[in-house]
């Protein structure tokens, strides 16, 4: 074989292998989605979405798990959005690059992003429930109101877990706002805060929204941090206050597939629940992709 054709063959082979790796990833995704769709679509009905589980979760629906998921994600958002956005605004608009405090905040954000989710669960138990909760109960003279697992503590634990994601997404959005816009506002006599409030943040809004959507998707599916901080196996009634325990979709799937007395009967229901969770997270992810590509195109046109 000539040198030329040998090089051609090795080129084809090498590139082919990287293509194969890509195809494998896509195949894995399709197999997982396909399995869940095939097994789950028959279970899903209005009944399934609106009824509580019955007969030890071998029958009935998943409504309390959906309800609890929405409840906890809402509280999480209320906690994480203001803090995350403010931190990003500080890092990108106020902080001096290279200053020790800026470096420290950045380092903390990076490290927070790498903390294992189960460690957040330990922290939630040790800090929110044992320390804050018990402390509140003692000072209010209540018995076991805050000092126990509940939606509030689970949601705050999730908020902490997702804080880095909000910060990174917001900072990226701020970075996309052209410098001239700030200079223009400042030159017209606006203060720094007025510039941020009326010029920078409105333009960064799509990016912040992308981050929010991704955080909702992640918060809805996380299980490890909430296992000890608020999620329950089964509850006969819906939670009424943030101090109640809650059922949630991810944990419900875990319980159904690992603790069921009759696995044959629960697997179809678990697949239905999984399909609902997957539809939600994938829809949210796609929404994020769409917002992102739209703003990117708009930016490209604007420049």
């Amino acid at each position: 074989m000539s040198e030329h054709s040998r090089r051609k063959v090795s080129d084809r082979l090498g590139i082919g292998m990287t293509g194969l790796a890509t195809a494998l990833i896509l195949a894995i995704l399709l197999v997982i989605l396909g399995t869940m769709v095939a097994g789950g679509h028959r279970v899903i009905s209005w009944e399934f979405l609106s009824q509580p589980p019955r007969e030890g979760m071998t029958r009935g629906g998943i409504f309390p798990a959906i309800f609890g998921m929405v409840f906890s994600v809402l509280i999480m958002l209320i906690a994480v959005l203001p803090i995350g956005v403010a931190t990003a605004v500080y890092l990108h608009e106020y902080a001096k690059p290279g200053h020790w405090l800026t470096k420290l905040v950045r380092g903390a954000v990076n490290n927070l992003a790498g903390v294992p989710s189960i460690v957040f669960g330990l922290f939630g138990l040790g800090f929110f429930i044992q320390f804050i909760g018990r402390g509140l109960d003692a000072s209010l003279g209540k018995e076991m109101l805050f000092g126990q697992p509940c939606i509030l503590w689970a949601a705050l634990t999730l908020a902490l877990l997702n804080l880095p994601m909000v910060i990174v997404a917001t900072e990226e959005a701020l970075r996309a706002v052209p410098r001239d816009e700030r200079a223009g506002a400042l030159a017209l006599g606006a203060t720094r805060w007025q510039t941020i409030r009326h010029v920078v943040l409105p333009q960064a809004l799509p990016g912040i929204l992308t981050g929010t959507v991704l955080v909702i998707a992640r918060g809805a599916g996380e299980v490890a941090p909430i296992m000890f901080t608020g999620a329950a196996y089964f509850l006969p009634s819906l939670p009424k206050a943030p101090t109640d325990q809650f059922m949630t979709l991810g944990y419900h799937i875990f319980v159904m597939t690992t603790q069921s007395p009759d696995i044959e009967a629960t697997v179809p229901i678990a697949m239905g629940a999984t399909l609902v969770l997957l539809c939600l997270t994938i829809a949210l992810n796609l929404v994020a992709v769409v917002i992102r590509s739209r703003t990117r195109n708009a930016l490209r046109k604007g420049r």
């Binding site: 990833i25 995704l29 998707a217 299980v223 991810g250 997957l278 997270t281 992810n285 796609l286």
Partner: peptide, 11 residues
């Protein structure tokens, strides 16, 4: 790949 990343680990 982002969709794969978005699949909850419990799933």
């Amino acid at each position: 790949v982002e969709v794969l990343a978005g699949i909850p680990s419990v799933v």
